[in-house]
Structures are given as structure tokens and as C-alpha cells.
Amino acid sequence: MTETLKAGSNELVYEAIGLKKQFDGGKVIALRGVDLQIRQGEFVAIIGSSGCGKSTLLQMLGSLDKPSEGVLNYRGKSIPDMPDPSDYRAHEIGFVFQAFHLLPTFTVVENVQIPMFEGALSRSQRKERAVELLESVGLGHRLNHFPSELSGGERQRVAIARGLANKPSVVLADEPTGNLDSQSAKSIIELLLQLHRDLGVTLVLVTHDLTIAERATRTVRMKDGLVISDQLSIPPTDSP
């Protein structure tokens, strides 16, 4: 099922060398020196128990937080040194969070349009794209509903559509099924896999669910702020 990681053949998307993150002036150490490379088109599952640093690593990759020490590059450019990381967040990556993080006072179709404000699309183009994305995640019939009117699974679909709003090359998903029942979780994973396959996006997914990690092309296991194993997987060919 798994084999030792070999260098990928595609372009290097992320490169972390000796990545460290401390909080409270060093009292809490979340990352102790992570070395990692992620290549274009990979589906990387980062697994580990709670508090192992996997979500912190994902936040660093998404420039939501800065490392305390070490190198972290995106396509050869230092993420912490980006003059305006909002450009990177808006156009290069899409986030999917465990708690969905939708804006409650906006409808589904409006939520998906939110990231597009940083793009060049006109108002009508924004709406058109949002509708298209929502239809692709199976929510064409829920456009004008508010998040509170949706099930957990549907909310996560909206969040995925929002994450894809600006056609990112990377999707960073932090426990995307953590708040869902097993049936919804399954369908969300299928959706992410389909997007990974069809759009060719690099998918970095943080989870503690091993059955999800088995679907990834590569599994990075973390413990106490360090990567303890990094293996290529052979995902099952048939859908579960």
C-alpha cells in the first residue's frame, strides 16, 4: 500500500527547511524543525494526534501565521518575506476549514464571491463564477440560502466552492471532515478527490482520520512538532 518517498517529478510547490514555531515567548513549541517538500499535483495527507503541529504547519503554508525560524518557500519564494501575502492567499491557494468559516449574514452565492473581490472579475462575472462553482459541488439549488439553513456537509461544500473561487493551484484543507457525520465526510472527501483529479490542484489535507489519509498519494506523519514519516501511498483504485 505504501512505499518510501522518492523525489517527485513535478515542480516543487512548497519547501520547508528547519521550520519552527513557538508561542508565548517559547513556552509552547508547536513546530520543532520541520523539513518538507510538496510538489505540484500531489495529494498530501498530514496526519498525527491532536497538538502534534499539523494545523500550525498548514497555517504557515497558507501564510496565516509566520514561522519563528526556518525556511518556507512557495515556488521558490519565501512566504514569510512576501511583501503582501494577501495576493498569495487570494490567488494561489484555497482554504477549507474544519469549522467552515462561512459568513453568516451572506447567502451561499455571496459567500463564494467574497474571495473574488481581489480578482479582476466584474460583478456579474463574480456571480456567474460563484453559481458555476456551487453547481459543480452540487449546491445549485441552494444559492440564496444562508449558511444557517444548510447541513454541515452542505456548508463544507460551500466552503470548498469558496476555496476554489480564484482558481488556486493549491487547496489547503484543515480537518475538512472533522465536524461532519460519516456520510457527509465521505462525500466531502470524494468531492476533494474529484477536484484534485479534475482540476489538477495540489491538495494538502490535515486529518487524524487514517481512512482519509489512505486516499492520499502521500502521507506525512507528525509527532510533537516534527515529521516522523513521509511516505508515498497507492490510493485504492475503486471508490469506497
Binding site: 497558507g62 496565516l64 503582501d84 494577501s86 495576493d87 498569495y88 492567499r89 487570494a90 490567488h91 482554504f95 468559516h101 459568513l103 467574497i114 474571495p115 473581490f117 481581489e118 469558496r162 473561487a165 480564484n166
Partner: peptide
Amino acid sequence: THEIGILLAVGWKRRR
């Protein structure tokens, strides 16, 4: 604060 955090996370510039 939470909402502003989300806006920043999805790429909104601080200026916006």
C-alpha cells in the same frame, strides 16, 4: 474579529 480573520484568510487585502 472572526469575520475579518476569514476575509484576510481568503485573500482580502488589509486596505480593503
